[in-house]
């Protein structure tokens, strides 16, 4: 389990639609904004990188001190991406995590009451993501 891990789903136009701190480390007051800053800044890198490869899992694309940013772009490429800020090197686990969350996200999309691109407020989704984080990260 990663000590620090911040997971975020970004939709078109850089709008975060889901955020979760999934690390085990005790939460610091300023951690949330730092993580957002790092992830937000990493979008710059992702934007370039996403078009250079056909892979969905972009591995670790950016880093800030000890924190690394791993990204998984959905097939729509750039429309939605899953980003994880983490401090542990566990590529396989992160990849599996991304894949499962992606599946979970697709299930959310199937909900006719969910407007694509809007914030995911489902508590079920949240619990599932956290469970996956515990499992893989």
């Amino acid at each position: 389990m990663a000590t620090t891990a911040c997971f975020i789903i970004v939709s078109r136009n850089d709008i975060p639609i889901y955020e979760a701190e999934v690390g085990v480390a005790a939460k610091r007051e300023d951690a949330a904004q730092l993580h957002q800053f790092i992830l937000h800044a990493a979008l710059d890198i992702v934007q370039d990188l996403a078009w250079t490869t056909s892979a969905m899992y972009l591995k670790s694309v950016d880093r800030f001190n000890e924190l690394m940013v791993s990204v998984y772009v959905t097939a729509g490429h750039i429309l939605y991406m899953l980003m994880l800020l983490h401090d542990s090197r566990n590529d396989d686990g992160i990849k599996s995590f991304f894949q499962e969350v992606h599946e979970l996200y697709i299930k959310t999309l199937l909900n006719p009451l969910y407007l694509p691109g809007s914030r995911i407020t489902s508590s079920h989704f949240d619990t599932k993501v956290r469970a996956l984080a515990r499992k893989y990260l």
Binding site: D14, F37, H40, A41, A42, D44, I45, Q47
Partner: peptide
């Protein structure tokens, strides 16, 4: 970051902060 091509505005913002 601002001057790099293409501009990396988010990085620009982050580093300014």
């Amino acid at each position: 970051y601002l001057l790099s091509k293409p501009s990396m505005l988010r990085k620009y913002g982050f580093h300014l902060v």
